[in-house]
Design a protein around this nucleic acid. Structure first.
Length: 824
DNA sequence: ATACATACC
DNA sequence: TACTGGTATGTAT
């Protein structure tokens, strides 16, 4: 393959704009001619200008890097080298060659499907897409330099005969289903990367296969495989779109002619993979290519080696792997794109072997993550286990259009997007806390703006309420000029995990009573007035924990996902994990998910859906450590927990942290106040660790500042609780100085801790106990609950670091665990 | 947490 | 005429 990374001494810019002939089927093209056409077609366009700008940014990055490089001393390098060698050894020790990983990839998938279904296309250069953008081209078109991700109008200039077919995603999905059925026969846990691509672990299958009789390894040869095609022009309709590449089924040619023939496959890996490809072809009349290797990273590269319609096996020996890696251009590695390539090239690193040789240098110039990746690549290491069930992290929708400058239209488009997104979210039962707005102006400049709520939302109005504000801000920023947009997108992220959704949040009592997460109904709730059943759809997502098994288009997962819990972890990984842990426990952030709570118990018309705005404002409130029990926490003794939140009469609440009075009808406001106090406290604590003296003035000031800062970005109608009464004392009434010996307002026992988060947790537990107590009608709850120790509880431990506080007395551990579950 | 960039299909 | 859309992740602040 002549896939030299297009070393463009010319401008370097070519590496960005020029033809990327890294793909199969693009060998031996007249690159210069093609690049000329591409440049000519692009020059002067806004797109081109923007690309130029981006390229300059990359160049600056490179310059910066080169400067850094120039400043590296021999001593540093030597030290780094030692480190690198140590890590290399460790990585080497972790090398696992025992797995047989296969990467399968359909050849020119969309294009192949279209060709299969339309005889006329078979002999023509064609591509799937539009005049604006192509998603795939067939191999005939590739001869002209026409490839995926190229705009159709440019492709047309390269090949005036090019036929552009609009995509039929439903059809591709259907075919995808068919091939996935076959995949599952070889690995029921296969990992789909897109409609046409997947990773499979053949290891188990191969073990089984050794014992299989021939009958199980024999597959019929269908002669008239295309029922959809009514015209039976035999030669043209041959199911074989591509001549066999080196790695094709050996017996295929021989036995193909006869109707009713069949094909026997052996027991080796290669035979098994040939069999799979054969079956795919029989079933879909489309060909696939495959790579066989001891890990995912290598398998991926291998599948490209004999494309189309071929396969390549990399033997599972260290020698074979290292040989294979040696001359492999870095750009071939999944994850190293054009920018990384360019940066590496600047360091004269073009092949994977160079990576290994330059690791010391790289470790001084690149991030830890990047280095780890480079090092693994240079050693031919990759994930040896494939796993599927990663949860989706975001969901988005975006649209490109002709210039849109009218604000009104922009808002309505925004709403439209939110509506569609909300629909999608609903389909998967998702709720997220972060809403992002993406804007691209007519100069192709992209902006994203995000806001994170305290509560997870999913409905159109809720999303729109936020997106609209973000959009408004941008419009205002630009005024008096209009925003001239060419794209708008909305994204949801920070999903609450399924465990965290509605049920537990809604009402702990309801949860306990129903004994399962199946329902968030609070029906059992004594003092809950049934008439309140009009309870806003507040938290509709009861059963939402269930997600659709698989979502085709969204099933991507990073290639380099690390295997779950294997001893395969590298030094880098472990070190990083450790750092991360440290980081997490040292950072004070918001807690996750409060589901229905905020809206559910909010006294103000949370239930009324009338105004998207008001509902959004409400959504911004609530959500905190003790969200689970916030109503209880805020409720004066005697008040029933679940009703207290719905009371509209103003209450004076005492903050357990700063002991100040908080006058509010909204428990969320109160809760947030507590959060802020805790934030301030622990920040201060950290700052003055050495003195271990708590500065009261500072606390007050910071409390105010924090409150103000937060308030500012929030709904205007909310009364800033921090700005009033001067009666507040920080950290607690009377207790100046040392931040120890906090007294739990519930159990009244002294807590020997300096950590307010720990203390807070204790209070939570106490409150929980009260609830449980009421629930079970028990009478003895004088015990002081132990502070739960659960270092794994990261989401929570952001506020409550694992504590070593000795529990005063032993108490029902079972109960403790139960509570802890809720607190997660 | 937010913004922006990179990468992949 | 015309340079996507969806998702994840890394990097910097």
């Amino acid at each position: 393959m002549d896939n030299e990374p297009a070393q463009t001494k010319d401008e370097g810019f070519l590496s960005r704009m020029a033809l990327n002939d890294n793909k199969a089927g693009m060998e031996g093209l007249d690159r210069d001619k093609i690049n000329n056409i591409i440049m000519e077609s692009s020059k002067g366009s806004k797109f081109y200008e923007n690309e130029l700008k981006k390229d300059q940014q990359v160049n600056q990055r490179i310059e910066k890097m080169m400067l850094q490089k120039a400043n590296i001393t021999q001593a540093q390098l030597k030290k780094a080298q030692a480190q690198v060698e140590k890590m290399t050894l460790a990585l080497e020790r972790s090398r696992d060659l025992s797995r047989v990983i296969v990467h399968v990839d359909m050849d020119a998938f969309y294009a192949a499907v279209e060709m299969r279904d339309c005889a006329e296309l078979k002999t023509k250069p064609m591509a799937v897409g539009s005049m604006s953008m192509l998603s795939t081209s067939n191999y005939l078109a590739r001869k002209y330099g026409v490839r995926a991700a190229m705009p159709g109008f440019i492709a047309k200039k390269l090949c005036s005969d090019l036929v552009i077919v609009p995509p039929n995603f439903d059809k591709y999905r259907a075919v995808s289903d068919e091939i996935r059925e076959i995949f599952a026969d070889y690995d029921p846990h296969f990992l789909p990367m897109s409609l046409d691509e997947a990773y499979l672990d053949f290891t188990e299958h191969l073990e089984q296969r050794q014992t299989w009789p021939e009958s199980l390894r024999t597959h019929p040869v269908e002669e008239t495989p295309n029922p959809k095609d009514t015209e039976a022009k035999d030669e043209d309709l041959s199911p074989i779109l591509f001549k066999e590449s080196p790695g094709s089924p050996p017996g295929l040619d021989g036995s193909k002619g006869a109707n009713g023939g069949s094909e026997l496959f052996g027991t080796s890996v290669e035979e098994a993979v040939r069999e799979m490809r054969f079956r795919i072809e029989q079933k879909t009349m489309l060909t696939a290519s495959a790579g066989i290797a001891p890990n995912m990273m290598l398998a991926k590269v291998c599948s490209d080696k004999n494309k189309p319609n071929g396969q390549y096996r990399l033997p599972p020996t260290r020698e074979a792997v290292m040989d294979f890696i040696q001359d492999l251009p870095v750009r071939k590695i999944c994850g190293i794109g054009k920018v990384s390539e360019k940066m590496l090239n600047a360091l004269e690193i073009t092949k994977c072997s160079h990576l290994g040789q330059q690791m010391a240098l790289l470790s001084l110039l690149f991030s830890e993550t990047a280095c780890q990746n480079f090092m693994e690549v240079s050693l031919g290491l990759g994930s040896t286990r494939i796993s599927r069930h990663e949860e989706r992290k975001s969901m988005s929708i975006e649209r490109t259009f002709k210039e849109l400058s009218d604000a009104e239209e922009q808002f309505s488009l925004c709403r439209e997007l939110c509506k569609d997104l909300a629909e999608d979210m609903k389909k998967e039962g998702l709720k997220g806390k972060t809403v992002s707005l993406k804007l691209k102006n007519v100069n192709f400049e992209v902006k994203t703006r995000a806001q994170t709520l305290q509560c997870a939302v999913a409905a159109e109005e809720e999303i729109f309420a936020v997106a609209k504000d973000l959009l408004k801000t941008e419009i205002d920023n630009e005024s008096p000029h209009p925003l001239k947009l060419r794209l708008m997108g909305v994204r949801m992220s920070a999903f609450v995990s399924s465990d965290d959704k509605a049920p537990t949040q809604k009402s702990i009592l309801g949860f306990l009573k129903s004994g399962s997460s199946g329902s968030s109904e609070i029906k059992g709730e004594p003092s809950y007035n049934p008439s309140q059943a009009s309870q806003p759809m507040a938290c509709p997502s009861v059963q939402t924990a269930k997600r659709k098994e698989e979502v085709f288009l969204h099933s991507r997962k990073p290639e380099e996902t690390r295997n779950g819990g294997e001893p395969q972890q590298s030094f880098f990984q472990r070190a990083q994990a450790k750092r991360l842990q440290l980081h997490v426990s040292s950072v004070n952030t918001q807690d996750e998910g409060c589901g229905a709570e905020a809206r559910g118990i909010s006294p103000i018309g949370a239930c009324s859906k009338e105004s998207a705005l008001s509902s959004a404002a409400l959504n911004k409130t609530g959500g905190s450590v003790s969200q689970v029990l916030e109503n209880k926490r805020a409720a004066p003794a005697g008040d029933h927990p679940s009703t207290s939140g719905c009371e509209a009469r103003p209450q004076i609440l005492i903050c357990p942290v700063c002991s100040s009075k908080v006058e509010t009808t909204d428990l969320n406001v109160f809760n947030r106040h507590i959060d802020l106090c805790l934030n301030v406290a622990s920040t201060n604590q950290k700052k003055s660790e050495s003195e271990s003296v708590y500065d009261e003035k500072k606390c007050l000031q910071e409390c105010k500042e924090l409150n103000k800062r937060k308030e500012r970005s929030e709904a205007e109608e909310e009364q800033p609780f921090g700005s009033k009464e001067s009666s507040r004392v920080c950290p607690r009434g009377g207790q100046h100085g040392k931040l120890s010996d906090l007294v739990c307002p519930v159990c009244h026992l002294t807590q020997e801790t300096d950590d307010l988060a720990v203390f807070n947790r204790h209070v939570d537990l106490c409150l929980n106990q009260e609830v449980l107590h009421e629930l079970k009608g028990q009478t003895t709850f004088s015990q002081n609950p132990s502070v739960v120790k659960n270092s794994k509880n990261i989401g929570k431990s952001q506020r409550g670091s694992p504590s070593s506080l000795p529990s005063k007395k032993s108490r029902s551990l079972g109960l403790c665990n139960t509570i802890d579950k809720f607190l997660r």
